[in-house]
Simulated assay, not measured.
Amino acid sequence: MDTSFLAFLAISAVVIATPGPDTALTIRNTMAGGRPAGLTTALGVSVGQLVWAVATSLGLVAILLASEPIFHALRLIGAAYLIFLGVQSLRSAFTGASASSAGQRGHPAHALSPGKAFIQGVVNDLANPKMAVFFAGVLPQFASQGQGMLSHLILLGLVFSLLTFVWLALYASAIASAGTLLRSPRVRRSIDGIAGLALVGMGVRVATSER
């Protein structure tokens, strides 16, 4: 196997395994809608990453990064979205009336639908300016130059998105498998609170970061 591709896999593994907005959202949505919502969130995140890969191959991400006003607007939109999701989770933690509140038999009373979870995953990833920086800064370093570079960039993006899906799907499955423990309202509200604080904190960090 090409050493350059192995290096790409190693860097991708580190980036993917580092907790961030996509991980926090997957945990939150799995709590709110069970395994289906968690898996579709992971799928949505992966689709968002594939969009970034295609945009990078077409040169659109480079244009985005070169335009300070557009990049700044994307950063603020992404930050606002993360804070919005975080506030929702915090409100659920304090009131106990949330999509992750369990019924008497452990089933969500108002479960987050897989479709909505998928959309949230896509939006969450596309609104993350760090993804634009990663795809524009890392992928071209591992793509073959000249003819075929576009397809190579898309292939690397596909590999990255598949690895992300597998990692987040494992997160979702592990949380869903712990359903008996997580049926406790106190535990659910604690996790809602932790996820909410994490999302708000990430939103503030995105809003105040330079790049």
Score class of each variant (00 low, 15 high):
Pro108Gly: 14
Thr23Cys: 12
Gln120Cys: 10
Thr23Gln: 11
Pro114Val: 00
Leu39Ser: 00
Gly38Asn: 01
Ala53Tyr: 09
Ser100Trp: 05
Ala79Gln: 05
Gln49Ile: 11
Gly96His: 03
Ser57Ile: 02
Ala42Met: 11
Ala62Phe: 10
Ala73Pro: 06
Val61Gln: 05
Thr41Met: 09
Ile63Asn: 07
Leu25Trp: 05
Val45His: 04
Ser92Gly: 15
Gln88Leu: 14
Tyr81Thr: 03
Phe94His: 08
Ala24Phe: 13
Pro114Ser: 05
Ser46Pro: 01
Ala32Tyr: 01
Ile119Asp: 01
Ala42Thr: 06
Arg28Glu: 04
Pro36Ile: 05
Pro69Gln: 07
Leu60Trp: 14
Val47Asp: 07
Ala111His: 00
Ala37His: 01
Leu74Phe: 03
Trp52Pro: 01
Gly44Ser: 02
Lys116Asn: 10
Ser100Tyr: 01
Gln49Asn: 14
Ile77Ala: 14
Ala97Leu: 15
Gly103Arg: 06
Glu68Gly: 10
Ser46Met: 03
Ser89Phe: 13
Ala32Leu: 01
Lys116Ser: 11
Leu60Cys: 04
Ala97Ile: 11
Gln49Glu: 13
Gln49Phe: 12
Leu76Asn: 04
His110Trp: 08
Val61Thr: 15
Ile77Lys: 04
Gly48Val: 06
Ala32Asn: 10
Ser98Glu: 08
Thr56Ser: 06
His110Phe: 12
Gly78Phe: 12
Gly34Ile: 02
Ala102Phe: 13
Gly33Gln: 00
Ser92Cys: 11
Ala55Ser: 09
Ala37Glu: 00
Ile83Glu: 06
Leu65Val: 08
Trp52Val: 01
Leu74Pro: 00
Gly103Ala: 07
His107Ala: 12
Leu82His: 02
Pro108Lys: 10
Val87Phe: 09
Val87Leu: 14
Ala99Lys: 14
Ile70Trp: 14
Thr30Glu: 06
Ala97His: 14
Leu60Ser: 11
Thr95Val: 05
His110Ile: 05
Lys116Phe: 13
Val54Asn: 05
Val87Gly: 04
Pro69Ser: 11
Lys116Tyr: 09
Ala37Cys: 02
Ala37Ser: 05
Ile70Gly: 08
Gln49His: 14
Ser57Cys: 08
Ala111Phe: 02
Pro108Tyr: 12
Leu58Glu: 13
Gly38Met: 03
Trp52Phe: 14
Ala66His: 12
Val54Gln: 04
Pro36Tyr: 07
Ala109Gly: 12
Leu74Arg: 00
Leu58Ile: 02
Thr30Ala: 09
Ala102Pro: 09
Arg28Thr: 11
Val51Gln: 05
Ala99Met: 15
Glu68Ala: 15
Ala73Ile: 13
Tyr81Val: 04
His72Asn: 14
Gln49Arg: 12
Ala79Ser: 12
Gly115Asn: 13
Gly44Pro: 01
Arg35Asn: 07
Ile27Glu: 00
Gln88His: 11
